[in-house]
């Protein structure tokens, strides 16, 4: 029973949604189902929040290693939730726009959320450098091709790349580094990307079919 009901639901909904694409009258079914999903996912958030409190709470109470981090997480979670729900400091009151200037939630957003998010994203610059330093080694022919391509793209995206070949006559325009860079992106990269996308689409089709037909059921638990 625990296995059969989900399988039947998957089978029916899967086929209905596939066919709804071809009938204008039922086209909006897909949208309705995505709204259903959002509702379920929102309710599941309570489970997520509960798990967070339980896990990190236990860590703090038992003074497990790293409990200080857990405490910060709990304070952040509960604090943001409370000032958001109660609209603390909101000049328009409890019925006002949650994003109104001057409210505590906006302060959290402006002075914590924004800088923290941007900082994490900015870490990429550092990690790209260290990964590039390690990965781009001319170990073999393929690696040399990769290295040269990376070089052209990087160079083509800087002012020096433009300046380096600006003296070339108009007939040799295609040899200018920014133009070679965009040729690599538009022709070579695009061809590769399309091939990967075709492979991915076929993978999605076959996985979806396996799920809809009930051949793949390990996502419901064991075999």
């Amino acid at each position: 029973m625990k296995r059969t009901v989900p399988l039947v639901i998957t089978f029916v909904v899967g086929w209905v949604l596939i066919f709804s694409v071809f009938f204008p009258y039922t086209e909006s079914l897909g949208e309705d189902f995505s709204v259903f999903f959002d509702i379920i996912a929102s309710i599941a958030f309570i489970l997520g929040g509960g798990s967070l409190i339980k896990m990190f709470g236990a860590k703090v109470i038992k003074r497990q290693p790293g409990w200080g981090y857990a405490l910060v997480a709990i304070v952040g979670f509960v604090g943001t939730l409370v000032v958001g729900l109660l609209k603390t400091g909101n000049p328009e009151g409890i019925t006002g726009n949650v994003l109104a200037e001057g409210s505590a939630i906006m302060a959290v957003y402006d002075y914590m959320f924004k800088p923290c998010g941007a900082t994490m994203f900015a870490l990429l610059a550092f990690y790209v450098a260290s990964a590039a330093y390690r990965a781009f080694r001319a170990k073999n022919t393929e690696a040399v091709i990769l290295l040269v391509t990376a070089f052209i793209i990087l160079f083509g995206r800087t002012f020096l790349g433009t300046l380096a070949t600006i003296w070339l006559p108009e007939q040799l325009d295609f040899l200018k580094i920014p133009n070679i860079a965009s040729w690599i992106m538009i022709v070579l990269n695009q061809a590769g990307n399309r091939a990967i996308m075709i492979g991915i689409s076929l993978g999605i089709i076959s996985t979806s079919l396996k799920v809809i037909l009930g051949i793949e059921r390990s996502y419901l638990g064991s075999e």
């Binding site: 450098a129 590039a132 080694r137 001319a138 170990k139 160079f155 995206r157 800087t158 002012f159």
Partner: peptide, 21 residues
């Protein structure tokens, strides 16, 4: 900043390869 960072990364790749060889 992005242009300069690109140049620095290129420099790093070059030094990485020289030491590798």
């Amino acid at each position: 900043p992005q242009a300069i960072a690109h140049l620095v990364i290129m420099l790093l790749i070059v030094t990485g390869n020289v030491t590798f060889f």
